[in-house]
């Protein structure tokens, strides 16, 4: 019943991984922290370049299009659009490498 070779649905063969469908509160807290860290990087870059009077297309585009952590809705922070999912949303932790890529905006209306 116990030990490393116990019969569980995961070990019993088949493709069954128990990934929770939503993030836990601590995962959400860390996600917000990561979002803020990226905001911080963008802000530092923007301030440094503004002091020198230089502009950067990718930076301007990011600032124009991407909301900051404070401006984002919770549903955009923790879920993302998926055309195959019920109600068109899935947890952001289903995105490969989700802790190291930016996924902030979703199709309008979804």
């Amino acid at each position: 019943m116990f030990g490393p070779f116990r019969i569980t649905n995961v070990l019993n063969g088949g493709l069954l991984w128990k990934i929770p469908w939503r993030l836990s509160p601590t995962q959400k807290a860390r996600q917000r922290k990561r979002l803020r860290a990226v905001d911080q990087v963008v802000e530092t870059l923007s301030n440094a370049l503004a002091k020198k009077g230089e502009t950067l297309k990718s930076l301007e585009r990011w600032k124009a299009e991407m909301p900051t952590e404070a401006q984002m809705l919770p549903r955009d922070k923790y879920t993302m659009f998926d055309r195959k999912a019920k109600r068109y949303r899935k947890g952001i932790h289903k995105l490969p490498k989700w802790t190291r890529v930016s996924q902030r905006i979703n199709p309008p209306g979804y």
């Binding site: 963008v42 870059l45 990718s58 930016s102």
Partner: peptide, 8 residues
């Protein structure tokens, strides 16, 4: 800055 944006 552009390089940092790629790996922000």
């Amino acid at each position: 800055a552009g390089m940092i944006m790629k790996v922000k």
